[in-house]
Design a protein around this nucleic acid. Structure first.
Lengths: 199, 199
DNA sequence: CCAAAAATGGACTGTCCAGTCCATTTTTGG
DNA sequence: CCAAAAATGGACTGGACAGTCCATTTTTGG
């Protein structure tokens, strides 16, 4: 769509995506109008259509940036995972982040719930995002298994999916209750389940 | 809003709520227009505003009916819960229902995700729905504990919340992947966690 | 049987919104 | 320095949609 992008253009585009990400996180993709994005960024209508083919394309970029943010935040905790203690630190970080953000839900979970049935393309993109997140968790568990902290009989792949489900379900219940406790209980269950496989 | 409701009126109202429930389940509340509800039911615009103050009121009734349906379906399995085997039957029923419905998500979970941040009233209503669902699970666990199948040290309240989180997260991941496996893995984790407390 | 209440029909309004179009300003690169 | 490309401005369109309004038909209950 764009041949070249000058630094100025790239900055404008990024500004738009970041503002759209926050608006969409707060209200959902369907409830955010391009006028709101224009107002929040000071960009004109033409700029939106200059950098994005249409609203869906903007939403795709929002999914992209949210995925990147989440993978970065989790990789920090998981890629040197070496003990159950480190898992608990990660657990506490997830809860702290949930609280710090006002218990408003997971950007990816919210988008998945809204878009999975509406756009096959978005559904697939979000499925990839969850898969990547799951892989980060799985790699961490594999590391623990290699270090002999988890039994060889453990199934990191299956566990990573179950842990991610606990995170998503916990965040959804917490968002609905406006209370981080459900997330805490869900994570506690997930870690307790993991400890059954402690070597 | 209505003084009396004749049987005919009650039937019309019910028809509207049921059609709206299906449409909203498929597309989300924001993406369903009253014109679609009219088309699906053969009702006129006046009828909608005769039976419901506005669209939000209709959505509230949809939440109500979906809550009732879910509580009924789960109560059947949980109110005579008497063994781990019965828990597994419930697990299988949840997965079968998820598959039978086309792995489209949980009606309550989807609405909670969409509406929690948008309408304080809907958020509160859905919080109550989840609480009621959790209570059904909790009562089942209490019954097992009273029968001595679960240790007295188990915490049914906390467990019910964690199990519900696993269900919701599993359903969300399954909906996104269009594959019931994530739900299966999440439920397996939840039941395995419970079995740690087998007496 | 008949007046009041309930149920239904459907046109109309005002607003919001995604997307289009054409023009102007700014930057780039030779 | 200048032409081409990139970036920006903003009016305009067509449709969708929630909600209003007034009328007619049907049912109820005394």
């Amino acid at each position: 769509m764009k041949r070249t992008l000058t630094p100025r253009g790239a900055a404008t585009k990024r500004r738009i995506v970041e503002a759209a990400a926050e608006l969409i996180y707060a209200k959902g993709a369907e409830r955010v109008s391009l006028d709101e994005v224009m107002e929040a960024t000071g960009a004109s209508r033409s700029q939106l259509y200059h950098y994005f083919a249409n609203k869906d394309a903007l939403v795709r970029e929002v999914i992209e940036i949210q995925t990147t943010r989440i993978l970065e935040a989790n990789s920090g905790h998981l890629e040197h995972l070496d003990s159950f203690e480190a898992l608990r630190v990660w657990r506490d970080a997830l809860i702290a982040a949930n609280r710090a953000g006002g218990v408003r839900g997971c950007p990816l979970g919210s988008l998945a719930n809204e878009l999975a049935a509406h756009s096959e393309e978005a559904r697939h993109q979000l499925d990839q995002s969850f898969a990547a997140w799951g892989t980060v968790i799985e790699k961490g568990l594999c590391r623990m298994r290699e270090r002999g902290q988890i039994k060889a009989s453990a199934n990191p792949k299956a566990m990573s999916v179950a842990i991610l489900a606990a995170i998503q379900g916990g965040i959804l219940l917490s968002k609905t209750a406006r209370d981080s406790q459900p997330l805490e209980l869900a994570l506690d269950m997930a870690l307790n389940h993991l400890e059954r496989f402690a070597a």
